[in-house]
Design a protein around this nucleic acid. Structure first.
Lengths: 349, 349
DNA sequence: CGGCATGATTAGATCGATCAAAATAAACTG
DNA sequence: CAGTTTATTTTGATCGATCTAATCATGCCG
């Protein structure tokens, strides 16, 4: 291990007291400029780094941000969290924070972990993902007055007030739908999840809104299913063989979109003569757009909506630091952030 | 925040001294059984949790394991690290450790981060991934006597000795090749990376060895390219249209395999009459096997080799804990671990 | 029953930083 | 120039745990 350099070593070298070293580093305004320089030089020469544990004992601040790493369920959307995590780690480091990981199988287990962590490592804040209706976690954290941000809006109107950063799913599906309308499609279907999930409802809403605005009635053009490739394929097949003349699909996830692609390629559906936009236009495969721009989308040439994850992570850190370091004025709370996804156009649409 | 419970509170409650509480928890053998019970009851009642920062100050141990989270380059293989990370977090928690993340753009930056972290948070150990020839990091850590394990073997024969856990890539490609041989294929090609990368050479070797053992000369049946889908497609196309009658491909990654699948489906190559195994057998698509069993493989039905990542992570933690907690005997160092990947058979082969 | 290992518990110091308050130096005021 | 005010630096205590060494019980033996 490297030899330890303490604040006392620096003090000795600079010919001042420990406290002056501390002040030079933490409250530069209070020390004379010349001594500050002298201290900084000593710090440099000795390679001094403040010991977090010791600082934490006195200040109660660990400069740690904790976040849960989920077992990537279906695997496809797991990469979203992964990319977010990377962005979070980078942004946090820039603000002098480190990211601590934990796992938990459900809300209750996660709250237990909160207690564990707060008792042992005392992270300064938590970042929550996958927020949902009636989230136990946010309520608990608010109750305990533990700082946190969620990546994802609080979906219920009655859900507790807290900081959040999110990506505007509706804006995304709206953009996707417009893209398809511009390409001449009219009967544009939607493949999503059963009502009740905030994220899913939001994404469906963007599609419906845009279609309606374009004079197309979305009724009957939507299907809901669980987030599995196979289920997406079934639902897409069902929608495509209906007599609504669906020529394009906007999907709530890349998993569903991949299923849709499979369905669209199944015999008797893709390349249907006379079904392309514009009536008797040339044969054309069913257009499909996914959501999240996962590696799978890139791999199979699926057009998809990309979330600005690094940006979202940076905003999370920014909100937390104003909450932790800066003094958030009571009258003027930090603003929540809603980011827009961007459409990555590939072969599928 | 929750009210803080210190060891003094527990001591008061149990009617003993602080030190006895500490002993009851850390050196149970030294305390009378009855008092131990009394202390444990007090701990339970008050919800006491040892403060890591305070403990760390005295013992110098943080119970933190640091690992770098990489920006998933091509996206496809990023999920491997993600799954490993999840396993690591779970295993570490079981042993009373937490995982701390950091990022770094290259070896040199990573070594700088080592210094930063060791000075500030004092992680007890590091887990390194993506080890490579002439790795600066392992040399530095060994020199500083900082405990660490690598997920990945030290590839050079002259590389420094340290703990590692790895997955036997050669065994994997050998199994894949056998699987293809059993299915009747003879001219089985290999798609990999340019020589020089330990991992890539290892995977190629397993294929070549197995083919040779089956009496097939692997000469000319191999192509090397960078790990991109498009490059894989080009290389596969090149190999397939040669006059060697290649009917199956083993690939060093899912990215390459995906490219191979595309190539195999390109007109004039797939379903080539008379080219199937057994000479004039029925038409058959080119078989493809990938490596890593990424979400993409699952999504497109690609047969692939799955690494036991959770297991690998667990072994990493096990090695570290014997190194840190247990007393690794000088004469009998902890054994490195080589795990076998398993073949996940899907439609592609 | 004194002398002494052995067992169980406790008091005091310590890790490295920061806080609070005191001490010292410099500057200002009438 | 004494009397303060202001700027700068220093001393001592403290955060919560563990280490070291000392204290207090017990049990055993000759």
């Amino acid at each position: 291990m490297a030899e330890k350099v303490t604040i006392a070593d620096v003090a000795r070298r600079a010919g001042v007291s420990r406290q002056t070293v501390s002040n030079a580093l933490n409250s530069p305004g209070v020390v004379r400029e010349e001594t500050r320089q002298r201290v900084l030089r000593a710090v440099e020469e000795l390679g001094y780094r403040v010991n977090q544990a010791a600082r934490q004992m006195r200040t109660g601040r660990s400069r740690l941000i904790a976040i849960r790493i989920e077992p990537d369920r279906d695997g496809i959307n797991g990469s979203v969290l992964d990319r977010f995590l990377h962005g979070l780690t980078e942004s946090a480091a820039r603000s002098g924070y480190r990211v601590l990981l934990y796992t938990a199988d459900d809300d209750r287990a996660e709250v237990d972990t909160f207690e564990d962590l707060l008792g042992a490592y005392e992270p300064d804040a938590f970042v929550l993902t996958s927020t949902h209706h009636g989230d136990l976690r946010t309520a608990w954290l608010l109750d305990q007055k533990v700082p946190f941000v969620t990546f994802g809006r609080p979906w219920s109107s009655d859900s507790p007030k807290h900081l959040w950063v999110d990506v505007d799913g509706a804006a995304g599906t709206a953009a996707a739908t417009r893209h398809l309308l511009d390409a001449g499609h009219r009967a544009i279907g939607f493949l999503g999840w059963p009502p009740g999930s905030g994220v899913g409802d939001d994404r469906r809403e963007g599609w419906a809104r845009t279609l309606t605005a374009a004079g197309v009635d979305p009724t009957g053009l939507s299907r809901a299913t669980s987030d599995e490739v196979a289920d997406g394929e079934k639902a897409a097949y069902d929608l495509l063989r209906s007599d609504l003349g669906v020529t394009a699909l906007v999907c709530a996830s890349d998993s569903l979109a991949l299923g849709a692609l499979h369905a669209a390629r199944s015999p008797g559906l893709a390349w249907q003569p006379g079904r392309g936009p514009g009536g008797g236009a040339a044969e054309r495969p069913v257009a499909v757009i996914g959501f999240d721009d996962t590696p799978v989308a890139k791999a199979v040439g699926l057009t998809s909506l990309s979330q600005p994850l690094a940006q979202a992570a940076a905003h999370c850190v920014a909100l937390l630091t104003t909450l932790l370091d800066g003094q958030a004025k009571p009258g003027e709370p930090p603003a929540n952030v809603l980011l827009e996804p961007s459409l990555v156009v590939r072969q599928s649409a």
